[in-house]
Amino acid sequence: MFKILFLLLLGVGIGYVLRNMRGIHRVDQTAHYTILLLLFVFGVTIGSNHDLIKNIAYFGWQALVIAVLGMLGSFGAGCLFNHYITKKEEEQR
Rank of each mutant, 00 (worst) to 15 (best):
I53W: 01
K54A: 15
Y33W: 14
S48I: 01
Y84K: 14
H50N: 09
V17Y: 13
E90L: 15
F40K: 02
V68W: 10
I14R: 02
N55P: 01
I85Q: 10
V68G: 04
Q92S: 11
H83D: 12
I56W: 15
E91R: 14
L36R: 08
C79K: 11
Y58F: 11
L69D: 08
L38A: 15
G43H: 00
F75Y: 11
A57G: 08
D28Q: 06
L80W: 07
G73H: 11
K3D: 07
I35Y: 04
Y33P: 01
G13D: 02
L69K: 08
M1V: 13
I56H: 08
Q92Y: 08
V44N: 00
S48M: 14
F75I: 10
G70L: 10
I85D: 09
N49G: 02
T86D: 11
H32Q: 09
R93E: 14
R93C: 08
L36D: 04
N49A: 07
I35M: 12
V68N: 08
G15S: 04
T30E: 05
T45S: 09
L64D: 05
K88C: 06
G47E: 00
D51Q: 07
E90F: 13
F2R: 14
I14V: 15
I66R: 01
V65L: 13
I53N: 03
L36F: 08
G73V: 10
R22N: 10
V12L: 15
E90I: 10
G47V: 00
I85L: 12
V44S: 00
D51P: 00
V65Q: 11
R26I: 07
I35S: 03
L80F: 11
